[in-house]
């Protein structure tokens, strides 16, 4: 589902964010990417979500060869993945319903179908009664649930989350993780970048640890690997 082969990403400086990076994530897997700040997690996240492209190497996500994507093809690639950010990235001038409906509107779906799907999704994330509220009227956890609902509304094969619990307390973080588990249980491949090791330890998932742009540990390769 996600494949990175001999990836190098260098920023002006030069700063080598990723060096000869290889990674394979199978369909239906749920994977934690961990590492300290500056280790390359965000760069990896940006590459996999099509917000950036590698200096060299090959990336394939949900059947799309990222290296060969033209500027015009990028939006169509993004319609096949779901992305969640630490800072939620919700449209403040739109209601919860409108935020979640956005990917379907962009896909050109009709309002009747959109309404039904959004209501179902809001039910799943437990925000049915907040549908007419604006993001600023919600708590951090609720905002993140809206962001997850938006990322999943178009039923992507891959969900990529960058520090999804970074702005939340422990209880809310666990709630979000349970929601992501639910999504994964339905067959969606989930890739979560986080530096919250306590959270990682509580979940029995494949964990990939990055440092200085390289994988230093992959639980899949360990004898008692989980996930």
């Amino acid at each position: 589902m996600i494949s990175l082969s001999h990836i190098y990403k260098t920023y002006p400086g030069p700063i080598h964010a990723l060096s000869n990076f290889d990674l394979n994530i199978e369909k239906g897997e749920s994977v934690f990417i961990t590492g300290p700040s500056g280790s390359g997690k965000t760069t990896l996240f940006r590459l996999v979500s099509g917000f950036d492209r590698p200096s060299s190497g090959a990336i394939s996500v949900a059947g799309f060869n990222i290296n060969e994507l033209t500027e015009k093809e990028v939006p169509y690639f993004r319609r096949n993945i779901g992305v969640v950010f630490q800072d939620f990235r919700l449209l403040k001038d739109r209601t919860v319903f409108e935020n979640v409906a956005l990917p379907l509107e962009i896909k050109g779906q009709k309002f009747v179908g959109i309404k039904q799907k959004v209501n179902e999704m809001l039910d799943i994330v437990g925000l049915t009664f907040k549908r007419e509220q604006h993001p600023e009227q919600l708590s951090g956890g609720e905002q993140q649930r809206v962001a997850i609902a938006r990322a999943l509304i178009h039923q992507p094969g891959v969900l990529i989350a960058d520090e999804p619990t970074g702005n939340l307390d422990e209880e809310l973080s666990l709630g979000i993780m349970e929601l992501l588990d639910k999504v994964n249980a339905q067959g969606t491949t989930v890739l979560i970048a986080t530096h919250d090791m306590d959270l990682v330890k509580k979940k029995r998932r494949r964990v990939i640890q990055i440092k200085s742009g390289n994988i230093v540990k992959d639980s899949k390769n360990e004898p008692n690997a989980l996930g």
Binding site: P75, R89, L91, D93, L102, I106, K107, R150, H154
Partner: peptide, 16 residues
């Protein structure tokens, strides 16, 4: 700017 970035994030084309 944020709104435009979010639109891009969820797959809006530049024309949209």
């Amino acid at each position: 700017r944020d709104e435009i970035e979010i639109m891009e994030l969820v797959g809006a084309t530049s024309q949209m």
